[in-house]
Design a protein around this nucleic acid. Structure first.
Lengths: 342, 342
DNA sequence: TTGAAAGCGCTAACAT
DNA sequence: ATGTTAGCGCTTTCAA
């Protein structure tokens, strides 16, 4: 059997309560005893028992506050699925969630939501936010209060977050380029790039990865245009059709954002007389349908369910002091084709 | 708070001990009380608390016996990694393992190993075995004794297993065909298929998936030969080189087994004057190197780490009566390219 | 600052 | 067949 608090108590000659307090950063225990006990715990390889802890904690469940811009954004459906799965799994280990959804990326709205979550007693947070100073300040404030923050899907590098759980956008772009290269050998590529917003760091990173990888692979390609669809279907369709009209020579389309994909699909269908190779991102219902119907050739996915699950799990592990300092969790970049959806 | 045994006891007017026994199939409780209590548990939505159960079970840990042909088979490294991860996670929830490895697929050796595991007190089993009547009988015997068996990586359909955790071989073959089709448009395909053994169900299924999918996609292809590498590097190299010599027109190679891949790589390198499109299966160290060096174009992987993890998790859930009847867990079929490994 | 003890949900040994 | 109780590892309240 593993080392328990009782063992530590016996070995150090103090009571089991003191040991528990010493190991839990309670400052109500003398510095020397505390130090001695921690030392001992280290030596004997003490690992807290989740079951015991969870059981004891039943009285005071740890609520995790979640703030995500998921309203009217189908991409988040799978993230929420992963969150649900984690909750089911960790509920009897003393973790539960409070979910607060927004529509869109307004920082002030989101910060207000986070404050409400805080007021309702959340002990930890999962946030999907865009980069902004206000948000960084908020994260620092929470962190300083001892409320850990996990950033989900979009990182704010250098902020005072506990860790990041999300995709590798660069890799996503590189893989898209790889597929284009492999599937279009010996043909000069005329490429249209579609993003939601050129300013969106994730989309921008994907584009960078795409272009750099393609450069390293071949020389017979040209980026005909980079257009913005504003994450909306209709806008995406309009700008794409315009690009097709102005540049009928386009034979490859890479869409670096998930939202607005049905607009892209509509444009490709409308201009079907030109055969084009199409790579998209993120597996949502519409995208699947477009792949099934051979409108889109490949989708580069980012395991959203895993992201939702791992964000909660990271906090569970942290709150239970499992492992040492939590590391970022970068999900797999997954290529999907028609066959995956049948 | 959720419903506990105490709540059920109060509601049904019996003691908490009786409730526990009724819910745990102990036959030492009268049929009617038992029925009444189960009914009630159903109505009130009782879910057993893992923490409580785990804590109580500390005295009698559930050992899971694992029998896999992993000696000298690098593919199993990742499966074992997944198993380790699961053990770390479930150890303080009352699960531990006893690992018994074999070299190769000899049924009698494996059955002897399983019997040793049984003697050493294992309460559940994870087995990776080839299909044979003896093995099916053994599984039935264990199952009848109340010892659940999870089949890992290779299913014996219709056997008395608890469930199967592993890949979708058909899908794997189909996706390989998709990649070949997409990447070799407008060129008549002369295809060499390589397996470990034509009799191996998994390999055979991959081949079937490959051929069927390709048929549904195009007509300008020909399967030049199907050769066996016996899961060995040297044999694979020899038969592949022979095929290349006899059929220099081969422009696509699909290897439907993971073992022996470095032999395939050696043959492709040796005959580099012919440019060929190569798709392989399963991500092991050698395969990664071959992909990095552009010898292999794509690898179709089967998430081995997830397989190892889920096999243990399935038993954990079952032993803790989480969820209802356990379902098979089919892992993702993942396409990987050079970029994934850099 | 520390010790003692209750109690979280559950199972199993013991008692009836 | 059923009730009672100890105890799994831990946190926290109450005393000292």
């Amino acid at each position: 059997m593993s080392v328990t608090l009782k063992d530590l108590a016996k070995a150090s000659g103090v009571s089991i309560g003191t040991v528990s307090r010493a190991l839990n950063d309670k400052n109500e225990v003398s510095a020397k005893t505390s130090e001695r006990i921690r030392q001992l715990a280290q030596e004997l390889g003490y690992i807290p028992n989740r079951a015991g802890r969870a059981l004891s904690a039943q009285k005071s469940i740890n609520y995790v506050g979640i703030s995500i811009p998921s309203i009217n954004s189908p991409f988040f459906d799978d993230i929420k699925k992963g969150i649900d799965q984690a909750v089911r799994e960790f509920k009897d280990l003393g973790i539960d969630i409070v979910l607060k959804e927004q529509e869109g990326w307004d920082v002030d709205t989101q910060i207000r939501n986070i404050e409400e979550l805080e007021q309702s007693g959340c002990k930890a947070f999962v946030i999907c936010a865009v980069d902004s100073q206000k948000m960084r300040d908020k994260i620092e404030e929470l962190s300083d209060k001892g409320l850990p923050v996990v950033l989900l899907n979009n990182d704010l590098p250098g902020s005072k977050r506990l860790c990041f759980v999300g995709p590798d956008y660069l890799c996503s772009g590189e893989i898209a380029a790889t597929m284009v290269d492999k599937c279009r050998q010996g043909i000069a590529l005329k490429i249209l790039l579609v993003v939601g917003y050129k300013a969106h760091l994730g989309h921008k990173t994907r584009i960078d990865g795409f272009v750099d990888e393609l450069k390293s692979r071949r020389h017979d390609f040209e980026i005909v245009d980079v257009i913005e669809g504003n994450d909306q279907d209709i806008v995406t369709q309009q700008v794409t059709m315009k690009a097709f009209l102005e540049h009928p020579e386009i034979n490859v389309v890479y869409m670096a954002s998930g939202n607005g994909v049905s607009g892209l699909g509509a444009a490709v269908i409308a201009d079907a007389k030109h055969k084009r190779f199409v790579v998209a991102c993120d597996e949502i219902y519409t995208t699947k349908e477009l792949v099934k119907n051979d409108i889109i050739d490949f989708v580069i996915c980012q395991s959203p369910t895993v992201q939702g699950y791992q964000a909660i799990k990271k906090l569970h592990d942290y709150l239970n002091k499992i492992g040492s300092a939590p590391e970022d969790f970068i999900v797999d970049t997954v290529i999907k084709v028609k066959t995956h959806f049948e």
